[in-house]
Design a binder for these strands. Structure first.
Lengths: 170, 170
DNA sequence: AATTAATTGACAGTATACTCACTATATGGC
DNA sequence: GCCATATAGTGAGTATACTGTCAATTAATT
């Protein structure tokens, strides 16, 4: 006799799904970042953009989006907000009229170096509840997984793209 | 002699931060879900809401937000979209004029049971690159971490809230 | 019973995160 | 030089994810 009862759906179908757990951790990570860094009025994404511009001065928006695995359209708004806060300036590229090159202002460099301890504190807090050995294990597995799934996301990370802008001036 | 050079910021400050890795995995998880489930026109959040309403028929929006750890304001829009698709109906509660109770329609129940295999496929795909033992380890650590950090997020999960609506009708 | 407090859903505002479409500009093949 | 193709940035549109505020309603307190 076949089983006529359909399998009942339970909330465990949601709670144990990796996708749900990643969404929750993303929520938690952002909340902790905002809490620790509220004195600096920077979001996690704005912070990542500042670091990337600091590391690659004169990068353009398209390459920046590849370096932080960030959608190009969204990045336009992020840069705009960083410009309003005067942490970033956009200068037209001399040899390509389409391109605008990104640079940190003095205030941008200052806020980046000032915010670092708070960022580190936020990052430490989100793994704090785990035993040190488990933190290491989780970070290692997460790093592998992000790397191996890189092409699955709509905006894969292309760290090497950051080097291309060097070809412009030399 | 003190070290006068400031520590240079590198992209590793971003790439190795757990917050960045969780953001990447969330992007990847959503992309895989949308890809596998594109035939059903449901987002991960809409799917979670449908499961919760299926599990708790007659729940209200506030309790639903606690059950899926989802901001109440955002949830209003999510429910609205599910209503437009006719997967969900809102009925005014007889004994509390503020409250609207949520129920799946037949179409909602049907899409939920139809989408399950695709959801499972998406969830499997995001851990696929890891060895089976590592998948288990990661899921276990993630589950612990989400649970232990529950209060850190702005909308903590309150699964037990789901039971409260039962007190209304009896 | 009347006042206060709390709750519900709605709304406005900000910030990701994505889609597709568009203009301006560059570049390749011919 | 010309034309097809590609690229850079922008804008419109959708969907989370949060903040605050607000009116309506209910519950708690006196």
């Amino acid at each position: 006799m076949p089983n006529s009862k359909p399998t009942p759906v339970t909330m465990d179908a949601v709670y144990t799904a990796p996708g749900y757990l990643f969404r929750r951790m993303q929520q938690i990570a952002v909340a902790l970042f905002i809490e620790e860094c509220k004195a600096f009025d920077l979001t996690p994404v704005q912070y990542a953009a500042l670091v990337a511009i600091s590391t690659h001065p004169g990068i353009d928006a398209t390459r920046l989006s590849a370096v932080i695995a960030f959608d190009r359209s969204t990045l336009g708004n992020v840069i705009e907000r960083l410009e309003v806060k005067e942490f970033v300036v956009r200068k037209p590229a001399p040899e390509d009229k389409r391109v605008k090159l990104l640079y940190l202002t003095k205030a941008g460099a200052a806020v980046l170096s000032d915010i670092m301890p708070s960022v580190d504190k936020a990052q430490a807090r989100m793994l704090q509840p785990l035993k040190p050995a488990d933190r290491k294990t989780l970070l290692s597995l997460l790093t592998q997984l992000v790397d191996l799934n890189n092409e699955a996301s709509r905006v894969p990370l292309r760290a090497e793209d950051a080097l291309e802008h060097l070809g412009r001036s030399g």
